[in-house]
Every structure is written in C-alpha cells, then in structure tokens.
Amino acid sequence: MEITTHDLWTVVHGMGFGALFMLAFSGAIGELYHLATGSVPAQQSERDRAMLNLYLIAMVTLAWLTVFSGEYIVYPWYRAVPPAGTTDLTEYPRRLLLSSGKTSEWHNVGMEWKEHVAWLAPIAMTMVAYVTMKYGRAITRPRYMRTAVLGFVVAAFVATGVAGAFGAFLNKYAPVRGGSSIVLMEGEK
C-alpha cells in the first residue's frame, strides 16, 4: 500500500482540512442560530462560551489551511505545464481536462469557479468568529447584526460546498498525480 506525495497532499487539502471544515458547519449553524435567536440561556456558562469560541477558531483555522494548501501546494501541480511532445497527460490535470471537449468545462467552469469562490469562506468565517466572540448573546439585540452573522455563515457554507463538490469531481476526472512514493504497508503479493 503506497501513496504519492501529490496524492497525500491532495487528501490532506480536501479531506483533512476541507471536509472537516465542511462538516463543522452543521454544528456552527445550529449553535449560532440558537445564540442569535436568544434560545441560549442568558447565563450561558463560561465553559459553553469557551467551547463555542474554540469551535469557531478551529473552523477559521481549517478554512485558511484549506485555501492556502490548495493554492500553494496542490494547485501548482494541477496547472503544471507538460514538456513539449508529451502525449501522456495523466500528471498534468489541467491539460488533460482541456484536451477534450467532453471534459474541458470541468476546468473552465468547475476549477475556475472553485479556485476563487473558496476564498470567500475563510474571510466570511473569520468575521463570523470575531463578531460572535466579541458580542456573544448580545448579537440577539440588533437583529441586523445577527442577520449579517447568519447570512455570512450560509454564504461561507455555499462557497465551501461549491469548492468541495467541484474538487471531488475534478479529482474524479483528472486527479493530481505524481511525486515520490511513500510506502505505507507491504503486502505478501
């Protein structure tokens, strides 16, 4: 059982950071909705407040790790240019997708949207975490503050969903390959 360094980083970027961030939305949306609608007890314990703050900080960290690892580690491999005369494009995903009309729009629409829209999520979640940590239950009072917080959480969720879904499809049609092999386990045959 072995994996290449490019495969490993793609998994770390997509499943390690991105999918964890995506999964965390269900908890965040529920907690922030309860906080914003005032259904959290007025005397919320210090421990509950600290847990929510920690949860949001973890989400923000995962969001930034996802976009930075994507842009500066995985994306350069995706858009690598093959040497002249190369006929096997399996290690050049962008060129592989663009080589056929049946797959080119996975790049022209999917990757082009994914690579940009993903960056809206960490910006939005950083604001959400900051405002929630600063105001806590007080965001229930000015309903426009809670509208902004909940609206940007949903926007971050949509941006992450778009990026994650296209990431999964792109990895299906043109996976990032190459790099040195890491042997995880040796079988008998």
């Binding site: 407040r49 806590g136 965001i139």
Partner: peptide, 10 residues
Amino acid sequence: MSMSRTTDEI
C-alpha cells in the same frame, strides 16, 4: 459579564 450585556451597552 459581557455575554449578558446587550448591544445597547456595547
């Protein structure tokens, strides 16, 4: 406690 304050105060 800041958690029990409203934005009338903040």
